[in-house]
Amino acid sequence: MTEKSKFFSKRYKWLFWMIPLAVIYLWSIIGLSFSGIQASAGEVSQSIIYGLFHPDWAYVYDGSGEDLLSLIVQTLAIAFLGTFVSGILSIPFAFWAARGPIHKTLYWRSSSGKFVLVFIRTFPELVLAIMFIKAVGPGSFAGVLAVSIHSIGMLGKLFSEAIENMDLGVEEALVSAGGNKFDVLCLATLPTVMPEFMSFTLYRFEIAVRSASILGMVGAGGIGTPLLFAIQTRSWSRVGIILFGIIIMVTAIDWLSGVLRKKLV
């Protein structure tokens, strides 16, 4: 190949990538049946914006236990309890899925663990919530169970990566000093990975707060139920105040967890 043609092929390589890309995008645009935007779209978005600027302040607290504040606290409680339980449940899954440095032959063990975690991660949280509603009835307890099982997928993955990247010196020191397996686990492995585990759990708590606020849409407690109801009955000032509540709650929790995580690591 001459210098010039080499230059040419290098320079215009991206063009060849453009062709499959264009085909994929065309396929998506043609494939989607854009039903067209309904006629009232402009009107509805106007009323939503109007609602956001004229929130229903009376809903914030009325002492009935069905107001914004108590439902926000309930949402936080679902997220907290769910994340706490899942943080404990994830630890055995993490050890199952972690690829050990010594047992190079035991790949099937960690691979099977990793697959189980992928499966849990992909299993839609909403479906899980509906299944738990069938078991314990509608309410926040179903939400707690859904969060605690679903979070295993992500926490288990993060935990197992923390174990894989762990500093092995402490373990070796304990083994050479005559510690048995239990000693090594309790005195070397767990203390080494604990700060990271806690940091990941806090991070997952942030995500759980978001998902707890929508689990109510299927009846699993929290702020989601009145939100969906308000959207369906088109009471936009109610929607506005709930959106405000969610935004403030999520921002506050993100900030708090950020501060705590900085202290941990």
């Binding site: 049946s33 854009f34 935007i37 939503i48 939100l227």
Partner: peptide
């Protein structure tokens, strides 16, 4: 602000705005 909104919440809002469907 945009990042605080969960995906399903946005979906519920957009279904109300543009109607049911992939749009």
């Amino acid at each position: 602000l945009v990042r605080t909104l969960p995906d399903l919440l946005l979906a519920a809002l957009f279904v109300a705005i543009v109607g049911i469907g992939p749009t």
